[in-house]
Design a protein around this nucleic acid. Structure first.
Lengths: 377, 377
DNA sequence: TTGTACGCGTTATCAC
DNA sequence: GTGATAACGCGTACAA
C-alpha cells in the first residue's frame, strides 16, 4: 500500500464512536489526561489503539495556531553538493534501479562508488544541519527539511509549515525572506550583518583568516599570497578582507588579483591557475575561500604537476571532514558547525534567552594546521 | 523576535480584504491561476506580497487530506550516536554557551573538539538519511525528521504529520507500527522479512557475510573465527547466520560462543575480550556485526597491547566513513546507504511502481578489504 | 465528569 | 469570473 491507496485515517470522531464517548473526551484523553476518569480514559486510549488513530498534526496546528515544527531550508543544495572537478553526474541524472522486481539489486546499480565520496558528504551544511537536528530532538521538536531554488514559492511553502525557519541564505534570498520575517522567526547561517531583522548565527570569518595569515607568514615565511574564491558571497568577502588585514598588520600585501572561482567551477579555476603557472607567476600560497575551492585547486595543481606544499601552499576554510582526507591533508579554518546548528535551533525554539532584539551569535573559528601549508601534520 | 511574539500570520481573509476580493479568489490566484482574470490575479498576488502572506500548510493539509510531507523516524538515535569507548558526554549533557551575550563565543565553549569525531558522524543512519533527503528534494517533497523512544506517542505524533513514514526500527517497534500501517505507508530499513504489511528496504546481510567469510578463509587462511555482536537485532542475526553458513560451506565451524556486545557496550565487550586474551583463547579473527562494534574492539585490543591484523584480524559491517579512518583501516561490508534512503523515499512517494503488494527491496552489499584483515590496502 | 458548539485557514462546490 | 458557504479534524470554552 503506497501513499495513494492508504485507508482513510481515523479521526477523533471514529475513536469517540468506538469508545462510546464524545470527541471532547477523546481529545482530553490525549491532552488533559487528568480531566478524565481513569475508566473512560483507558477506554478511549484502547479504542484509539485499536483504530490506529494518530492525531492529525494539520488539524492540531490549525486549531492551536502553531505547528510545533522547526524548519531548515537550504537553497540550491543539490548544486553545491556536486564535486567540482570530477564531473560527478548530477544527482538527478542517476538512474534508479527498478524497485518492484524480485531479487537482489546488484551493487553496480546503486551508484554507491561515485556517491560515497567524502568530498560530497558531509559538507559544511551537513554538519550544521546535524547540529540543528540534534538540538531539535533534544528539545522534542520535529524538524522539517526543505530545499529549493530560493524562489518565493519554495520559501513560502516551508514558512507555512513551521514555527521558525533556519536558512542557508543565497545572495538572491533577501527579498523573499524579508517578506516572512514578521511572520515567523528566521535564522540566517553565515550571513554578514545586515539591517534586516533576522537572527544570525555565524563565525568570525575575518578573525579566522587573520589567524591563518599569521601562521603562514610567521611559521612558513610566506610573503606572496593570492586569494581563491568569489568575493560576491558575503562570507567570502569577509574572509578576503580578513586576509588582507591580517597581512597588512604584518606589513604585507595580498595579491590584488583574486583567483575568481565558483565552487563547482573548473570553468574559471583551471585556466586561471594554468595562466599563473605558465606565466611563472604562481604565488607562494593559494588561500582558498572554502575547503571545496581548495580541493578543486589541489586537483588542478596535481594535474599540472605541481607539488603541495613544496611548490605552492594551499589552504581551505570550513574544516570539513574531507579536508582531513585530501592529499595532502588540508590546512584550514574550522567552523564549529554542530554548535552553530544547535544555536539556531535554540533561538527558534525560544530557549536561547529573551529576544528583545535579533540574536547575532558569532562563534570563534579555529585554525587547523596540516600538511598542505608545510606543517608536519 | 522569537517564536513567541511573532506577529499573527496573514490569512486569505487579510489578503482578500486588502485586494478587495473574496477569499475564493485569493485561493484561486495561487492554485488555479487560469480561473481568474489577469487583473484580479495580479491584484491578489500583489496584496499577498505586501502582507507577506504564506498559505498555511496546516490548513491546506486539513482541507486537502494530506500534508505532502514524507517522514523519517529514528528510534533512540541519540543513544546510538554516542561513541562506545571514549565516554563522550552524552549529547544532552553538553552545556550550551550563552547566545544572548555580545562578542565572539570562544572555541572552547563549542565542544567541537569532542563532537567532530567521524566515529559519531556520519553513521549508517546518517548516510541513509541523506539519501532519503536527496530523493525527497528531487521529488519536491519536504522531509520531516523525528526521533523518539519508540513509544506510541512519538510515533503517532510523527505519523500524524506525514503522508508516509520511513523508519529505522528497534526491536520493540513492531506493535506501535502495526497500528499505523493501514493508515499511512511505512518503510522499514534493515528489517528482516516479516508478515506485517510494511515495505522493506534492506541488504543481503547473509550474502555480505558469506563474501567476507570467503575472503578471510581463502585469502588469509583463517580458520578460527568468533562473531562479535548482539544477535537479538534481526539484521545482526542475519549476519551471524550468513557467517556460519559461509564457513560451513568451506568446511569450517564458527565459534559457538559469540562475543555478546551492545554498540555502546564497554560493559560487556572489554571483560569478554580480556577473558579471551587471558585464557589464550583469542580467535584468529573477530568478525563484528557493525563497524561501531569493530571500533570498540579495535580500541580494546589496542589497550590490551594486541596488534591488528598481526595478532588478530578484525572486520566490521556497514562501510561507514569512519571505517576508512580507523587504524588500521577497517575491512568491512559496505551497504549502499544512499541508494537505500532514496529507494525508501520513492516507495513512499508512490513513484516506485505499482504497489499491489509491499515492496521488499534488497540491495547487494559489497566487501571492502583494507588493512584490518591483513590485506595491503 | 462529559457533551455541544464554535473557531482555526484552506480548498472545493456551488450559485450568481 | 467572482462570491458565499460547507467541509476538513482538533482544541476548548461553556453548558449540562
Amino acid at each position: 500500500m503506497s501513499e495513494a491507496d492508504a485507508a482513510r485515517r481515523p479521526t477523533v470522531y471514529d475513536v469517540a464512536q468506538e469508545a462510546r464517548v464524545s470527541i471532547a473526551s477523546v481529545s482530553f484523553a490525549f491532552r488533559r489526561p487528568d480531566k478524565l476518569s481513569d475508566a473512560t480514559r483507558e477506554r478511549v486510549l484502547e479504542a484509539a489503539r485499536r483504530l490506529g488513530y494518530a492525531p492529525s498534526a494539520a488539524a492540531r496546528g490549525l486549531a492551536h495556531g502553531r505547528t510545533g515544527t522547526l524548519g531548515l531550508h537550504a537553497f540550491d543544495l543539490l548544486l553545491e553538493r556536486a564535486d567540482p572537478l570530477t564531473q560527478t553526474p548530477s544527482f538527478t541524472d542517476l538512474a534508479m534501479p527498478r524497485l518492484d522486481a524480485d531479487g537482489v539489486i546488484p551493487w553496480a546499480q546503486t551508484d554507491d562508488d561515485v556517491l560515497s565520496d567524502p568530498r560530497a558528504f558531509p559538507l559544511y551544511v551537513d554538519e550544521v544541519q546535524r547540529g540543528f537536528e540534534l538540538e531539535c530532538w533534544a528539545l522534542g521538536r520535529p524538524v522539517m527539511l526543505s530545499s529549493g531554488a530560493g524562489t518565493d514559492v519554495s520559501v513560502a511553502d516551508t514558512a507555512g509549515r513551521v514555527d521558525g525557519l533556519a536558512i542557508f541564505p543565497s545572495p538572491q534570498t533577501a527579498p523573499a525572506l524579508a517578506r516572512y520575517a514578521p511572520t515567523i522567526p528566521i535564522v540566517l547561517f553565515s550571513a554578514a550583518p545586515g539591517d534586516d531583522h533576522h537572527h544570525r548565527v555565524r563565525v568570525d570569518n575575518a578573525g579566522g583568516m587573520r589567524a591563518l595569515a599569521d601562521h603562514l607568514v610567521r611559521e612558513h615565511g610566506i610573503r606572496d599570497i593570492a586569494f581563491v574564491g568569489r568575493p560576491e558571497a558575503s562570507d567570502t568577502a569577509e574572509r578576503l578582507i580578513g586576509l588582507q588585514d591580517g597581512l597588512a598588520d604584518l606589513g604585507l600585501l595580498l595579491r590584488p588579483q583574486v583567483v575568481d572561482a565558483t565552487v563547482r567551477g573548473e570553468d574559471d579555476l583551471v585556466p586561471q591557475l594554468r595562466a599563473l603557472i605558465a606565466g611563472g607567476r604562481m604565488p607562494q600560497a593559494l588561500v582558498c575561500a572554502t575547503d571545496q575551492h581548495a580541493f578543486a585547486v589541489l586537483d588542478t595543481l596535481a594535474a599540472e604537476g605541481l607539488r603541495v606544499p613544496e611548490d605552492v601552499v594551499v589552504t581551505g576554510f570550513d574544516g570539513t571532514l574531507a579536508a582531513r582526507l585530501s592529499s595532502p591533508p588540508l590546512t584550514t579554518v574550522r567552523q564549529p558547525m554542530e554548535a552553530m546548528g544547535r544555536a539556531a535551533a535554540r533561538i527558534l525554539a525560544g530557549v536561547a534567552g529573551p529576544a528583545d532584539r535579533p540574536f547575532d551569535v558569532v562563534f570563534e573559528p579555529r585554525l587547523v594546521v596540516r600538511r598542505s601549508c608545510g606543517c608536519p601534520g
